[in-house]
């Protein structure tokens, strides 16, 4: 089998491994729209990264963090519902990104950033993804119980001596990192689906948070395999094919439940 397919498979599986357990928190804490907003701001990061010539994945993480802080500021200042503010931030940051991109003379493939370009993953990129995924997995595992506790009841966690602020920051950083790492796999417009669909699918047959996290990883990996096979034999775009196969798995699981 061609090298590029193996590299694509490895990158996709790695991202699915971390997107599953992290996505469980996104689902439990009802942060799906928050994740989507951060993903939209990724293009802003890309544009700035090109403009000032820094590592693009790093630029994406920075943009995600900046938008998350802006969100907190706006929540405190305006009498608007969070989803309204998220809507403003998501679309204006995407639009800003596109406008700024027009000022750079870089000749980039916009579609690749929006919808992923898994089949062109290079060895260097694969190494970056592997390093990032393992670091994120370790951080998630070490702080697993603390993150569960703050998700269940923030004040109870605080009384029991946990640093709630630090944990929330960690969760945000992990989400930003996964977004940066999976740009290449499914693209910024589809990233949230990798964090939301596998956990939603895993929920119906999980009886503990850990089982749900592991199942979500496995389902994500299945979706990546299914999507790549479809992409290879039917010549469909790889990122959307992965999301389609995740969605198919979700509908099968909800049918099995009844």
């Amino acid at each position: 089998m061609a090298d590029f397919i193996l590299r694509a498979l490895a990158a996709g599986l790695l991202v699915a491994l971390i997107a599953g357990p992290l996505g469980c928190f996104v689902v439990w804490r009802r942060m799906a729209y928050f994740g989507d907003t951060l993903a939209h701001s990724a293009l802003l990061g890309i544009s700035f990264g090109l403009l000032i010539d820094i590592n693009l994945q790093f630029a994406v993480i920075l943009a995600c963090i900046a938008i998350a802080f802006l969100l907190v500021q706006m929540e405190n200042k305006h009498h608007l519902a969070t989803d309204t503010i998220l809507g403003i931030l998501a679309h204006s940051s995407l639009a800003f990104g596109l406008v700024i991109l027009s000022f750079t003379d870089a000749n980039i493939d916009l579609m690749a950033y929006l919808f992923g370009d898994l089949l062109t993953v290079s060895n260097t990129e694969l190494l970056w993804i592997a390093g990032g995924v393992f670091a994120a997995l370790i951080l998630l595992a070490v702080n697993w119980n603390s993150l569960l506790t703050i998700t269940l009841h923030q004040e109870l966690a605080q009384v029991e001596g946990l640093h709630v602020g630090r944990m929330r920051l960690l969760l945000m950083l992990l989400i930003a990192t996964v977004i940066a790492l999976s740009m290449k796999v499914v693209g910024m417009l589809l990233i949230t689906s990798l964090m939301v669909i596998p956990p939603a699918c895993a929920r119906s047959f999980s009886s503990s948070p850990e089982k749900m996290a592991l199942s979500a990883s496995l389902i994500g990996c299945l979706a990546v395999c299914g999507g790549l096979i479809a992409s290879f034999y039917l010549d469909t775009p790889s990122g959307p094919s992965i999301v389609v196969s995740a969605a198919v798995l979700f509908f099968i699981s909800s049918l099995l439940r009844k």
Binding site: V27, W28, R29, R30, N145, L148, T149, T151, L152, H153, E155, L156, V159, E160, G161, L162, P199, A200, R203, S206, S207, S208, P209, K211, M212
Partner: peptide, 24 residues
């Protein structure tokens, strides 16, 4: 501390045993 209410999102599968194990 016993808080006024605990709202566990139904999307989170967690047993009473695990919930108590999480106590510091």
């Amino acid at each position: 501390y016993m808080p006024q209410r605990l709202q566990v999102d139904p999307s989170m599968p967690i047993s009473v045993k695990k919930f108590l194990q999480l106590a510091v």
